[in-house]
Every structure is written in structure tokens, then in C-alpha cells.
Amino acid sequence: MDDRDIIKLYLARDEEAIAETQRKYGRYCHYVALRITGSEQDAEELVNDACLRAWNTIPPHDPESLKAYVGMLTRRLAVNRLEENTAAKRSGHAAAPLEELSECLPDNAEGNLPESVALRDSLDRFVKALSRRDRRVFLQRYWYACPVAEVAADCGMTVSHVTVVLLRLRKKLKAHLEKEGFSP
């Protein structure tokens, strides 16, 4: 069944939509959740939660890509779970990428709480401006929370080259955020 047909099921409030979404994108969502939380049990729960969230939000939402939509819902839930787990001293796979992102914080940004929408738009502009290769490396590390070795294998690069590219990208992101006014 293609995405459009599944979305039609959601719009018609047919519960088969949830089963179809699980069948088609359950594995993808599980991958996203597992990479971030590092827990098989959390990942299974989050996939179910994401499908339920899709049921509750379509309509009014009518996503162009169902895969991207449920992937985003899963990631959002997984990030929440990671924060809960971190507060409870149980860190997930994403602990390392998260720590690395602290290098991107603009200088003297502590206490500066910009609107999340502005930050989101700024990140989108940053990602858009990257070359396809750099975008893949950046997103595999910081969106999918993949280990560096896995990014290297996927992109046909050596581990140390990926490390160097990520270092450059973090510096670039820091400069981008400062340029866009995220530092006082």
C-alpha cells in the first residue's frame, strides 16, 4: 500500500492505518528510536507511541511523506525519552553526539533562550547550505545518532575522515548560529 492510501485511511479514521504504518515503517521508526535511546524496550514502546501520535494528528495534518512524518514523531518521542533517561542517569546511544553538539554553542550563549522556531529555521538553513555529502554525514550523526564508524561505512569514508568532517561541520554550525544572532 502506498503512502497516499495509508494517509487516506487515517483521514477516513480507519484503524487499519496504524497497522499499515507499523508494517511499512515500523522498522525505520524502531531504528530511529533505538539509535537515540539505546534501549530495545524503549524503542518498541516509542514506535507504538509514534503510530498512535500519527493517528491523533492526521487529520488535521496531511503529510507529504508518511515515512518522514512518523520518523519525526518517533525522533521527537525518543529525544523526550532520552532526556528522561538522562535525568534518571540512564544515557542512550545519543549521549556522544549530544555531547559533541555542545561545541556548536555560540560563545556566551548561556542564559540566552531563543524561540525554538527561530532555532529550527536556522538549523534548516544550515543543513540546506551543506553539500549532499556533508549533509548526509551531519544528519546521520546528529539526526539519526549513528556511531562514527557506521557513518563512515555508509558514506564510503574512513573513520578519521568522518571525524574531521564532523569537526569542521560543528565549527561551521557554531559560526552559522553566531552569525544568525544566537549569541548576545
Binding site: 525505520y28 555531547e99 538549523l123 549533509r135 551531519f138
Partner: peptide
């Protein structure tokens, strides 16, 4: 702003980029 804010807000970037960057290993996950 914290590193967590950046990590969180990355979630909602343009969907096409997220799909394009999907690791190939994902298709093999079980």
C-alpha cells in the same frame, strides 16, 4: 540555548533531507 536544544530542534528540519540521509543500515535493522 543548550546542545539539547540543537539536538531537539534538528528533529523538524526539511523531511527530504532526513530521508536522503537515512543510513543504509536502517534497511537491514531487524
Amino acid at each position: 540555548m543548550t546542545n539539547q536544544d540543537i539536538f531537539r530542534e534538528l528533529t523538524n528540519i526539511t523531511p527530504a533531507y532526513i530521508l536522503d540521509a537515512a543510513p543504509r543500515a536502517e534497511s537491514a535493522s531487524r
